[in-house]
């Protein structure tokens, strides 16, 4: 039934309806003037022209484009420089600590806090060796 009704709508009526829709879209003179004389509109146009000109100049001049990219990369380079400086300072401090005169009590490069444990280990090794010797089967 819907299709039947659709076919009955003739093109002429639809065209008249579409004409009416187009007429309904028409703006009033005051609307046209208000948009045309909108405050700051011309200033916005000027700003867009300037940015567009800058973009076009950068596109045509490779050196200018390179300089702009370089300018954008400055913060990254600065950060890298700070990181490099900090790590070189840290390494330098470590080197200074290593080159300081060795503590005579330091055993075989072991850190100081492990020395007590090393003593205990030595003592236990001595004990184990003597036990082992006494516990050997007689030939």
């Amino acid at each position: 039934m819907w299709n039947k009704r659709n076919t009955h709508i003739d093109d002429e009526k639809l065209d008249r309806l579409s004409d009416e829709l187009f007429r309904a879209l028409e703006a009033s003179e005051s609307e046209i003037d208000n948009a045309a004389e909108s405050p700051f509109l011309f200033r916005r146009i000027r700003a867009r022209i300037e940015s567009e000109q800058r973009r076009l100049a950068e596109e045509t001049n490779p050196w200018l484009a390179l300089m702009t990219q370089f300018r954008q990369a400055i913060p990254v380079f600065a950060l890298l420089a700070v990181v490099a400086l900090a790590s070189s300072l840290y390494l330098h401090t470590n080197e200074t600590n290593k080159s300081a005169p060795e503590n005579p009590a330091l055993i075989a490069g072991l850190p100081l806090f492990l020395q007590d444990d090393q003593d205990a280990l030595d003592a236990s090794l001595v004990g184990w060796q003597s036990n082992n010797r006494s516990g050997q089967p007689k030939e």
Binding site: L25, E26, A27, E31, I32, D33, N34, A35, A36, E37, S38, L41
Partner: peptide
């Protein structure tokens, strides 16, 4: 000529 452009713009768009 800004009103000419505005008039044409309103032919296609309804929002200011």
């Amino acid at each position: 000529h800004n009103s000419l452009v505005s008039r044409l713009g309103y032919r296609f768009f309804s929002r200011r």
